[in-house]
Design a protein around this nucleic acid. Structure first.
Length: 298
DNA sequence: GCGACAG
DNA sequence: ATCTTGTCGC
């Protein structure tokens, strides 16, 4: 499978290794080298296990991330007193720019027409360190539960807002291809076309697997929310309705539904609504439980 | 300066 | 996503 996790790490190490002794580099500048400022948190988290002088990376306000830098330069009040290095030599535009373009090219493959299916499979993941569990829970459209399956994998790509496809996409696609069951359609934990580039995890998986998919997220990633009535809200992005906010059961907070692939906005909403006895629709809800339990045993 | 940022 | 105690409500 695409090993973007390793590529991400290698690119980070290549950048860090260029920071000379006596200087520091800003986290945001390092993130820019990799292609997207949104990766700052992921990078900050990865730094301690990165080959090279990772301690020379500082925050925007010059506050240090690692004590080891105080042995090389002056640190006052937790802030580094050293010139900022930002003359990175880079071969390309950064891995995240490349991945962003990959999604942009995939966008034309999204099909928002309706296709028939009698069952839908909820997908979710649970993590424990490097260990990752993918759970699939199949339901009939009528609401009847058919089966559950779990797969053990791993993920190296970090969580970066808007790049979830590269963290959870490969493990999920692997599980789908390894499954011996018939998988007609998917309900994914994450967004479909409700995404800055109109291509979230649900669309990514739906396209790669070639089946209908619906995205259901617990938090709003982007877009503007409009509530014509109290039960259903429209999510507008770039002047278009790309999804709905739905409230299920006695829940105060809504979930955000958007079509992934091979389904219309309205059918994605209708199917999701039919599974909303609780806040989280049943397929995804059950997959979440199954994944969590799968992590426990063994 | 403040808000926003799927899992 | 994960780390985590008690607490409020049905």
């Amino acid at each position: 499978m695409e090993d973007y996790g390793l590529e991400f790490r290698k690119e980070l190490e290549r950048a860090i290794s260029q920071i000379p002794e006596g200087m520091v580099a800003r986290l945001t500048d390092v993130a820019d080298v990799l292609g997207d400022r949104r990766a700052v948190r992921a990078i900050a988290q990865m730094l301690p296990s990165t080959d090279g002088p990772f301690w020379r990376v500082v925050r925007e306000d010059m506050s240090i991330l690692n004590d080891r830098i105080s042995k090389e330069i002056e640190v006052t009040g937790g802030k580094a007193k050293a010139p900022i290095f930002n003359d990175f030599m880079v071969s390309g535009t950064g891995i995240l720019k490349k991945l962003s373009k990959e999604r942009e090219d995939m966008r034309s493959a999204i099909d928002l027409n309706d296709y028939e299916f009698e069952t839908i499979v909820g997908v979710d993941m649970a993590y424990s360190g490097n260990r990752a569990i993918v759970a699939l829970s199949c339901f009939e459209i009528s609401g009847f539960h058919r089966w559950d399956e779990i797969f053990e994998t791993s993920t190296d790509f970090p969580y970066i807002p808007t790049y979830l496809s590269y963290r959870e996409g490969p493990p999920i696609l692997k599980a789908i291809s390894e499954s011996s069951r018939e998988i007609e359609a998917l309900m994914v934990d994450g967004n479909g076309i409700l995404h800055p580039e109109h291509l979230g995890l649900a669309s990514y998986i739906g396209i790669k697997a070639g089946i209908p998919s619906i995205g259901v997220a617990k938090n709003l990633l982007c877009g503007e929310l409009r509530w014509p009535d109290t039960k259903k809200g429209e999510i507008v992005l770039n002047g278009k309705v790309v999804g709905y906010a739905l409230r299920g059961g006695k829940a105060k907070n809504p979930v955000y539904v958007s079509p992934g692939n091979m389904i219309s906005l309205e059918k994605a909403r209708e199917i999701t609504e039919s599974f909303m006895a609780h806040r989280i629709p049943e397929p995804t809800r059950r997959a979440h439980e199954v994944a969590k339990k799968g992590l426990m045993r063994k």
